[in-house]
């Protein structure tokens, strides 16, 4: 009987140690990122970063994304919905973390579309057609081209503009920032410099709402 108790207590201690360890680690991590956010806001928003929403917004939602990432596609309308329900209060900043192999190809197309003022339209087309070109077993990046006209872009100009070496530099910068901020998966969300601790749409909404109440206390 004594052995059963020893065993049960050990199991409990191990589980507790794991839970305390994770919350301690996550707390430390959040502290570190909070410090980075105060010392170096550039890590979150670069001049080249694509944004959506009012410049006067007090809540910055930063998303490290990858055009070939399924979860990013699934989250895109949810994120836009959060912004739409709080007009003028939230600004979305997109950062690149093209972790999927060959995903920088799509970032280049996006940036080329930006020059034609069709960034969001092109991103929507990419997300919507993702299953056709981003299969994990057989990615076929060339397939994207047949869908691009839907975004209303000049496809020939994109083919030319996407080779701009400045885009490559931009991706490198974003990847370096992602590394600094410990983003290892996409989408990686930060709200006013606070990382999303556990991933999920509910958790994201909670984090955004807590920042909204903190920054707009009278509404």
């Amino acid at each position: 009987m004594k052995t059963h108790i020893t065993f049960a207590i050990t199991v409990l201690v191990l589980i507790l140690a794991f839970m305390i360890g994770s919350s301690y680690y996550k707390g430390k991590q959040a502290e570190k990122i909070d410090f980075l956010a105060q010392e170096n806001a550039e890590l979150f928003v670069r001049n080249h970063s694509q944004t959506l929403g009012s410049d006067d917004a007090k809540v910055y939602l930063i998303e490290f994304m990858d055009p070939a990432c399924e979860t990013c596609a699934a989250f895109s309308s949810f994120v836009k919905q959060i912004i739409a329900t709080n007009p003028g209060k939230i600004k979305l900043v997109l950062r690149y973390a093209p972790f999927h192999e060959g995903a920088d190809y799509f970032v280049k197309i996006l940036e080329a579309a930006k020059k034609q003022g069709k960034y969001w339209e092109t991103l929507d087309v990419m997300y919507n057609t993702q299953p056709y070109w981003a299969s994990h077993h057989n990615p076929q990046p060339q397939k994207i081209w047949q869908f691009l006209p839907k975004a209303g872009v000049d496809v020939e100009r994109i083919r030319k503009d996407m080779n701009d070496p400045a885009i490559e530099k931009m991706i490198d910068q974003d990847l370096a920032d992602a590394k600094m901020l410990n983003v290892r998966k996409t989408p990686g969300f930060f709200v006013n410099g606070k990382p999303l601790q556990t991933f999920g749409s509910k958790q994201l909404l909670q984090l955004v709402e807590s920042e909204l109440t903190a920054n707009y206390p009278n509404q």
Partner: peptide, 25 residues
């Protein structure tokens, strides 16, 4: 045997800590 199990359990938890908490792939 208990010690053996304890080492296996700590290692398993440690490896889960690296992947789930610290997010090392």
């Amino acid at each position: 045997l208990f010690l053996c199990w304890l080492i296996a359990s700590i290692s398993a938890m440690g490896s889960l800590f690296f992947s789930s908490v610290m997010e090392f792939a």
